[in-house]
Computed example of a mutant assay.
Amino acid sequence: MTLEMGSVVKARYKTGTYVGSIKEERGKFYLVEILAVLKHPQQGDLHHPKETEDVFFHERRALAQNEKANIPKTAVSAYTNTVPEYSDSLRTAVQQLKHDLKEQPSSRYQELALANVETLEKDYFK
């Protein structure tokens, strides 16, 4: 399936997954405008997942509604489901991330990640 300008797509960006619309083709990338969040980004250091020692533990926000991101074409595919409303999709993605973290064995990573997600949640939904 060929993706064209305006196509609704599923796009993986860093550790998050989004629904977006293709705005431009840029060589090996698409410029994608974010419409919804399917999976909230993981917390912490992208290069050292789930580690807390000797790394900078990042608070990772989801891309904002209508934010545009350059996403490799290999991380973009057609999206055929109904596009959820952004704030509802963000709330669902945050709840899923919190649930997944709470299911993990207790660790320093889990503690820091949950604290980040709770801070983000307060900021997102104030």
Rank of each mutant, 00 (worst) to 15 (best):
K126I: 11
Q65V: 09
V117Y: 01
V8A: 04
D54M: 05
V55W: 06
E4Y: 15
S89F: 02
Y124T: 04
L97Y: 02
E51G: 08
L112E: 10
S21R: 06
E25M: 14
F56G: 07
P105C: 10
T82C: 13
V19Y: 01
Y79F: 14
R60I: 03
G27E: 11
G20K: 00
T82G: 14
A36L: 02
F57R: 02
T80Q: 12
R26V: 11
H47Q: 15
I34S: 01
T119C: 12
Y30F: 15
T17E: 10
H40F: 02
E25W: 14
Q96K: 10
A78M: 10
M1D: 09
S89R: 04
R26K: 15
T119E: 15
R61N: 13
A113G: 05
P49F: 14
S89P: 03
T17N: 04
E121L: 12
D88F: 14
R12G: 09
P41Q: 10
D88S: 14
Q96N: 09
P41T: 12
E53H: 10
A115H: 11
Y13W: 06
K39G: 06
H48I: 06
V8D: 04
R26E: 09
K102R: 14
L35E: 03
T119G: 15
L120V: 05
A62S: 11
I22D: 00
M5H: 15
Q96M: 04
